[in-house]
Amino acid sequence: MEYFLQQLINGLTLGAIYGLIAIGYTMVYGIIGMINFAHGEIYMIGAFIALIAFLVLGILGITWLPLALLLVLLAAMVFTAFYGWTLERIAYRPLRGSPRLAALISAIGMSIFLQNYVQLLQGARVKPLQPVIPGGVVLMEGAISVRFNYIQMMIIATTVVLMAIFSLIIAKTAMGRAQRACQQDQTMSALVGINVDRTISMTFVIGATLAAVAGMMVTLYYGVIDFFIGFLAGIKAFTAAVVGGIGSLPGAMLGGLLIGLIEVFWSAYFTIEYKDVAAFSILILVLMFRPTGLLGKPEIEKV
C-alpha cells in the first residue's frame, strides 16, 4: 500500500510534466492540424535555459529561493517563447497551404536541427544540477515510508495554477476567443477581422512557455538534462495529447496524467527496461480502438 501510494505521487508528478508539454501539441494540432514535431526540442531548450538561468543567478548571488525560482521561471518562459515564435515563423508559416507532409518534414528537420544546435553550443555531455529544493514531508512512516517531496508539491501546484490561468485565457480573453475561432474555421475568422497569423504565432508562444515550465521542472526534479531529452518526452507528451483527444485542452492534461501514471506503475511493478514500450503500446492501442481519444470530438470526413 505504501509502495503504491509512493508510486502514485511519483506518477502524478511525472504526469503533470507530460501534461504541460502535451498542451503545446494539442493546441497546435487543433489550430493548424499538424504535429509540431519540434515541440519536444522546445521543451529541451526550456530545460537548458532554466539550467543556465540557475547558474547565472548563482553567480550573481541571488540565493533567496522563492525569488530565484521565480526569476528562473520567467527567464525560461520568455526566452523559450522566442524559440517557439521563431520556429513557427521560419519552418511552418511559409508552408501553410502546402501538402501536409511538407510541414511534417519541415518539423522533423527543425527537430534534428535544434537538437544538434544545442549539442554544438552546450556540449553533448549530461548536465548535472545540485538539488535546489531538498526535503519533503513523510506522509506515512513504515518499512517503506511514503514521501511527498517539496519539489513534487511545487511541480503539481505550479501545474495546477498554470492550467487554471491558461484555461481562463482561452475561455475569457479576446486572444482565447480568436484562438478558438481559428480552430473552427480560419477563413471565416479572417473575414471577421481576426489576425490569423498572429493567433497562430501566439499559439506557438503559449505552447513554448508551457513547455519551458515543464523543462524547468524536469531540470529541478531529476537534476540532469542533456540535449536528447526532447525526443522521448516529446513522443510521450504527444501520446498524452492523443490519449486525451487531440485538440482538447483538458484532454491533454488528463492524458498527461494517465501516461505519467502508467509509466511509473509499469516501471514499479513490471520491467523498467520496457517502460517506453508501455507508453508506445498505449498510443497504438488508443489510436486503434478510440482514435478520437478520451475527450476528443470525432473528425467528420467530407467528400
Binding site: 508552408l95 502546402s98 511538407a102 519541415s106 528537420g109 536541427f113 544538434n116 554544438l120
Partner: peptide, 17 residues
C-alpha cells in the same frame, strides 16, 4: 546533422512538393 536538419527545412520551404 545540423546542416542536414537545416537542409530539410529549406528544401521544403523552397519546393514544398
Amino acid at each position: 546533422m545540423l546542416a542536414f536538419g537545416g537542409l530539410m527545412v529549406m528544401i521544403m520551404i523552397w519546393r514544398p512538393r
